[in-house]
């Protein structure tokens, strides 16, 4: 399976070409934010939402001389309550792990967005694809602060596409015995 290259900010055209099950390599700026940061920013995140991707993640501390610590995904569904409004305001992509609720899937379809999975527990490998990391907001949240990351060929799997195609369901149906 050859991976599709994506650059942020995402265009509708690029998003609509993605199908659940596609492997992608993402390059450009993405934003790391999880539970506490979502609660803080509500509808006013400390960055321009248009076409952007939020990565549900909080890294381990950065060792001296490194760009970032290990940074894998956290469980996305904990952010479900915040997501539809962010999608309505221009957010286009989310990277995390695990399933999303029906409201989120509806909003993904309505606003032509996409949800990617990266493997939980592949945090060392994913960190190698982060080229720069900058604290954006909420230092008081420690590891849960919002970060701006530049990533290069960050590997992810399209899990819910803009038509509602859902790899969790399709994959499971295909392999269940």
């Amino acid at each position: 399976m050859s991976a599709i290259k994506l650059t942020t900010p995402l265009t509708n055209e690029a998003i609509n070409a993605l199908k659940a099950g596609d492997e992608v390599l993402i390059s450009g700026t993405i934003y790391a934010a999880r539970d506490a940061a979502h609660k803080q920013f509500g509808l006013q995140p400390p960055f321009d939402l248009q076409g952007q991707i939020i990565y549900y993640a909080s890294p381990t501390p950065t060792k001296p001389g490194e760009v970032i610590g290990s940074i894998g995904p956290t469980t996305s569904s904990r952010m479900d309550a915040f997501t539809p409004a962010l999608l309505a305001a221009g957010l286009k992509g989310m990277i995390g792990k695990g399933s999303r609720g029906p409201e989120v899937i509806e909003a993904i379809k309505k606003h032509q967005a996409v949800y990617f999975t990266v493997p939980g527990g592949a945090a060392a490998l994913l960190a190698k694809r982060v080229k720069t990391a900058r604290l954006l907001a909420y230092p008081e949240l420690h590891s849960e602060a919002a970060l701006e990351l530049t990533v290069d060929n960050f590997p992810a799997t399209v899990t819910i596409d803009s038509t509602g195609g859902n790899l969790f369901e399709a994959g499971r149906n295909k392999y269940a015995k």
């Binding site: 527990g121 592949a122 994959g171």
Partner: peptide, 28 residues
Amino acid sequence: SPNGREILRQLIHNAGIARKEKRPICQD
């Protein structure tokens, strides 16, 4: 599953990087 194989490959690759660079396997 091809998607499944890709994930497993990444996890095995990840374990190697973590060991070599003494990095946490997972951020949690």
